[in-house]
Simulated assay, not measured.
Amino acid sequence: MSVPALPAATGPGYRVVVVCLGNICRSPVADVVLNDRIAAAGLDVTVDSFGTGGWHTGEPMDQRSAATLTAAGYDPTRHRAQQFRGAHAAAYDLVLAMDSSHHRELAALGVPAERLLMFRAFDPAGEGDVPDPYYGGPQGFDDVLEMIERTADRLVEALQR
């Protein structure tokens, strides 16, 4: 699988945002993992996360996501949910949607097509949606973390180029 080309930076540094539905499960996990990998690589890249909905704004991530991250050695404590709005559309060099419904919503909010990709476009195991573990059991959170870690590794490689 080839890695998609990254859009050019619009300013100093590079800004990436990961977006899911409520910003309490998938996108905050990706935010934490990507920030960890980017810091280890010494890259000048900022990563944020948002949800398309505002139900959880200001709340920490889902306890099951936080527990999964903690068990894997990450620190999930800084996260607070926030909602992606149209004003954010031009603020990021790369906008990564966790599933196809988020991709459609982000496009409708004005994210330029050349800056909007699916998160798993970088997954060496294949493209598609990152499944929402919210209504499932603990294994779903483990599976999502594994998917995000391998995708983050490939994304960091692309950012290093």
Rank of each mutant, 00 (worst) to 15 (best):
M1D: 05
A8H: 11
A9Y: 15
A9D: 13
T10C: 14
G13R: 14
Y14F: 15
R15G: 09
V16D: 07
V19H: 02
V19P: 01
C20I: 00
L21R: 02
G22K: 01
I24M: 03
S27P: 00
A30W: 04
V32R: 06
N35C: 12
N35Y: 03
D36W: 12
R37P: 07
I38G: 04
A39T: 15
A40Y: 14
T46V: 15
V47A: 10
F50S: 02
G51M: 02
G53N: 03
T57K: 06
M61A: 04
M61Y: 06
S65W: 05
A66V: 08
A67T: 06
A67V: 04
T68V: 12
A72V: 01
P76H: 04
T77Y: 01
Q82W: 04
H88K: 04
H88C: 11
A89G: 09
A90C: 07
A90P: 06
A91V: 02
A91E: 12
A91C: 04
Y92F: 15
D93M: 14
L96R: 08
A97N: 03
A97R: 06
D99R: 04
H103T: 03
R104E: 05
E105H: 11
L106F: 09
A107H: 07
A108Q: 13
L109Q: 09
L109H: 01
V111K: 06
E114H: 15
R115G: 07
L116V: 09
L116C: 05
L117Q: 13
M118F: 09
F119A: 11
F119Q: 06
R120I: 14
D123H: 10
A125C: 02
G126Q: 12
Y134A: 00
G136H: 03
Q139F: 06
F141H: 02
L145R: 02
E146N: 08
I148H: 02
E149N: 05
E149G: 04
R150N: 04
R150Y: 09
R150E: 05
A152T: 10
D153F: 09
R154K: 14
L155G: 04
V156G: 11
E157I: 14
A158T: 10
L159I: 11
R161T: 08
